[in-house]
Design a protein around this nucleic acid. Structure first.
Lengths: 258, 258
DNA sequence: GTGCTTCGTTGCGTCAGATCAATGATTCTG
DNA sequence: CAGAATCATTGATCTGACGCAACGAAGCAC
């Protein structure tokens, strides 16, 4: 069962990575004109691949740029005053990190690669300059930040209200759907982060995460082989994550006030 | 560079230029020209005061504007699928809400006033338009959103890693310093939210919050009289919150690597 | 390969905080 | 102002997840 060590994802990632950085969220969904994409492309610096464990930036670093993940994955984490780290997020290809640093001029968190990862550096002053010339770009930047706020808010709900199993299910669902959005398989993927990272992120102990994986497997939700995971019952997992059914019950949740 | 301190000069200027909507973040720290502030002022709609419990917007509402709190306070909350609400944040005068809705066109959360509250409605399409004409404004918007992301991240750390007493201490410190920034007393203020809200926000049971207040009072940290609170030992409370140094804003924390 | 280190899993006792329950204190409402 | 409803506090239990410990498995260095 150890044959899956070569990650099936890497090939696909590589393919995506090659079409220059246009899969960034910055120019992805909205209609940015061809020539504007080119202008954006010009200011982007492609850095050579990071090895597992390398930092993209460190807490306290001067803020100069935001970064788009081209391939691989990254975790961002902040420091507790007692020295412990709290993982803020896992970021996948196409996503952008460093947005929390804009307001203060220095990075309030660190970003570390979870595997061989290639990233694009987008110098922020130039991005802002460009954005003031290209309104659509400015709007897209604001949108991306808004989405980041929203996803943070969802994580807050997770940490504040959900049980251990709901948390893990939520994470798996989140990874699944984000990967799917980028054209990867939704049901089978590689967990590039360690159990420790997962526990940290979800506010759980490592042991709890481990136990949960075991239980999930017993229930037939997933098949786990160390870092490789296959989701066997996506609907059940989604339900466990606390995400109500998709189209099934078309109930508009009109909640009155409390 | 980025100075996050609130310069008294700016405050004065703002009161003159934007008297009715005094001190909201959009034009606060950075040097926006007098005439630009006036233009911003023009698109802002002052709504009549909200009573306690009124909504600024509701989950699912179409997104049209962001809102600046002028006076009073507001809580924002999201819904768990099981119906429970998770409070995302408490917002004080000068702060801006609704930023999580920009990306999707509809509000993913609700905002409800905690007391008699007056707010400014800032129609977003007009704000964006104006921002594309006034680069400083665009930059300020992005900064505000970045700060929102960062403060969400801090809350994540709180929910993920901190103990019950650290959580409550953190909340009190946060309120204290934010109120202070706006010229209110840092040591004595009114808790406009219920114990229930506090517990919800901090991921704790109401009873736990109550017990904590009692304990804090016994230790001589604070003096509580229902919704009125006085901080008796600010340093101790800060320490308990897990905040090392004092510096509110731009403290350079040089942390070594892992 | 061989040792060495880190990672993942499982068992078990413990505890912080949840839950249940009961009683004051406040605030709505008419 | 009385009565109802909600909110706050305190005590008594209970439990889910943590922390420790032990061991196997996987990755790394030489």
């Amino acid at each position: 069962m150890n044959d899956c060590s070569t990650k099936p994802l890497d090939l696909a990632m590589l393919r995506l990575a090659c079409q220059n950085c246009s899969l960034h969220e910055l120019c992805l969904p909205v209609g940015i004109h061809q020539e504007d994409v080119a202008r954006l492309d010009e200011i982007i610096r492609r850095k050579r691949p990071l090895a597992r464990g390398d930092h993209v930036y460190r807490l306290g670093d001067e803020f100069r740029a935001v970064y788009a993940i081209r391939a691989g994955s990254v975790k961002t984490y902040a420091m507790t005053e007692t020295g412990g780290e709290q993982i803020i997020g896992f970021y996948l290809p196409g996503e952008i990190i460093g947005l929390d640093a804009i307001h203060s001029g220095m990075h309030p968190s660190s970003a570390k690669s979870l595997e061989t990862t290639s990233i694009c550096e987008i110098p922020f002053s130039q991005l802002e300059e460009l954005a003031s010339a290209i309104p659509t770009l400015a709007r897209q930047l604001v949108r991306i930040m808004s989405r980041e706020i929203h996803s943070d808010d969802e994580l807050l709900t997770l940490l504040g209200k959900k049980s251990a199993e709901e948390r893990l299910a939520s994470l798996l669902m989140s990874l699944s759907s984000r990967l799917q959005q980028r054209g990867f398989s939704a049901r089978e993927f590689h967990l590039s982060m360690s159990r420790n990272d997962i526990g940290n992120y979800l506010g759980l102990a490592v042991e709890t995460v481990s136990r949960l994986f075991t239980r999930f497997q017993q229930i037939g939700l997933v098949t786990v082989n160390n870092k490789h995971i296959r989701i066997d019952n996506l609907d059940a997992l989604r339900e466990m994550a606390g995400i109500v059914g998709g189209g099934a019950c078309g109930e508009k949740i009109r909640t009155g006030s409390t």
